[in-house]
């Protein structure tokens, strides 16, 4: 059975891009969320195998979402999606328990490498 992924990003474009990359590689995108709050709700509802999590988002940012999700399910697997120059925040997210990170602009092989490592 294909691994199930939840994509979290406030930019629809970004979600689409990750979605395409992952779908092509045989992963199943079971849901998308556009902010941290939605992400937490969707995670609790669907328990996906993996979350890709943007950092800067309205409502609730990615780092808070990581804390909340891991607070209720320590087994959750999360990959952060960061932009150049966000290293302090990425470190924070990793500290909070995120497994890995990818950097925008995304390259297919980078994204897949990270995803395969975490749930492959």
């Amino acid at each position: 059975m294909a691994k199930r992924v939840l994509i979290v990003d406030d930019a629809a474009f970004m979600r689409m891009m990750i979605k395409n990359i992952l779908t092509e590689a045989g992963y199943e995108i079971i849901a998308e969320a556009e902010n941290g709050k939605q992400a937490v709700e969707k995670y609790n509802e669907l328990k996906p195998d993996l979350i890709t999590m943007d950092i800067t988002m309205p409502e609730m940012d990615g780092i808070s979402a990581v804390r909340e999700i891991l607070g209720s399910d320590s087994g959750a697997k999360i990959i952060m999606c960061s932009a150049m120059g966000q290293q302090a925040m990425v470190i924070e997210a990793i500290q909070a328990g995120a497994k890995d990170f990818i950097v925008k602009p995304f390259k297919n092989e980078r994204v897949l490498e990270a995803v395969n490592k975490v749930i492959g």
């Binding site: 960061s82 150049m84 966000q86 290293q87 990425v90 470190i91 990793i94 500290q95 890995d100 990170f101 950097v103």
Partner: peptide, 13 residues
């Protein structure tokens, strides 16, 4: 490697 500070941090963590 992008954001190598984070990679370094992950290694140490």
């Amino acid at each position: 490697c992008l954001l190598k500070a984070v990679r370094g941090f992950m290694v140490i963590k």
